[in-house]
């Protein structure tokens, strides 16, 4: 009976993995199709949709914008979030637990609600520039990922090392930079990676903040899927998937996937 149970569970796991990968594999397959319609199985294979990407200006612009916003917002969150996490971990500020919850709470709010709140606030504050509005909103989106991983890393960090560095002649900021930063680097890498992905993929917040000329990639992609779906969309999606896998492998080499996922 127990044997049967475990066999059943393994079958379900196998089924789940196939199920999860289906849409991803479909996108990959279609991107290599020779046909403009998404017939299955595809009539033949070609790289023509990848070649046509070179002319997809609005798509490439969106990729570039999303990359910038994701990289900048992740960097800003890393700096602000880490400093805040240090103060929280060391009990320098009152109500440290509440502060930690607050800094991580954007993750718990529905994305659309956040997006609407940003839209209204940007209007009320007279913030017209789409780029800076997007950037500010994405710092809020990425902050919880940084807070969670960095707080977890800091809880394992021995702060006597910072004291030791100070006693050896480094000022407090220099001590943090030379001792704390290298030791919680794995937390930075995994937190930064998830933050980057969260920003790069964000749809529900960005949809309220983009304008006709400034569109992030998910917005542009969805537009295209709704308006004129053709395998060019599949080609760019396939490149995104490959890019994500490459980033995961690089980070795995740096800090280990197990450690990354255990946050």
């Amino acid at each position: 009976m127990a044997l049967f149970g475990s066999l059943f569970c393994r079958l379900v796991l196998g089924f789940v993995i196939v199920f999860l990968f289906l849409p991803i594999l479909i996108v990959l397959t279609v991107s290599f199709s020779s046909s403009a319609v998404f017939a299955f199985p595809p009539p033949g294979f070609s790289l023509r949709w990848y070649a046509s990407l070179a002319n997809a200006d609005s798509m490439l612009q969106a990729v570039w914008l999303s990359t910038q916003i994701a990289a900048l917002s992740t960097a800003i969150s890393l700096v602000l979030g880490t400093l805040c996490a240090i103060a929280i971990t060391r009990g320098m500020i009152p109500g440290a637990k509440v502060v930690a919850t607050f800094m991580a709470s954007p993750l718990m709010l529905p994305g659309l609600v956040l997006g609407i709140a940003f839209l209204q606030a940007a209007r009320d504050f007279g913030l017209r520039d789409t780029y800076s509005t997007l950037l500010i909103a994405h710092v809020v989106i990425t902050m919880p990922f940084i807070m969670r991983t960095v707080l977890a890393s800091l809880s394992l960090f021995d702060f006597a090392m910072v004291d030791a560095a100070r006693m050896l002649g480094r000022s407090y900021p220099a001590a943090l930079w030379t001792v704390l930063v290298p030791n919680i680097l794995p937390g930075f890498v995994s937190g930064g990676l998830f933050a980057f992905i969260a920003s790069f993929d964000n749809y529900p917040v960005s949809i309220f903040l983009v304008d006709v000329r400034t569109k992030t990639l998910p917005i542009q992609l969805l537009n295209q899927v709704e308006m004129s779906p053709d395998p060019t969309v599949a080609a760019i999606s396939a490149l995104l998937i490959l890019g994500t896998i490459a980033a995961l492998i690089v980070c795995d080499r740096l800090v280990g996937l197990k450690r990354m996922a255990s946050i």
Partner: peptide, 13 residues
Amino acid sequence: IGVVFQNYALFPH
């Protein structure tokens, strides 16, 4: 002033 800490606080990196 030099300090030898309880758990040594050596820098593992």
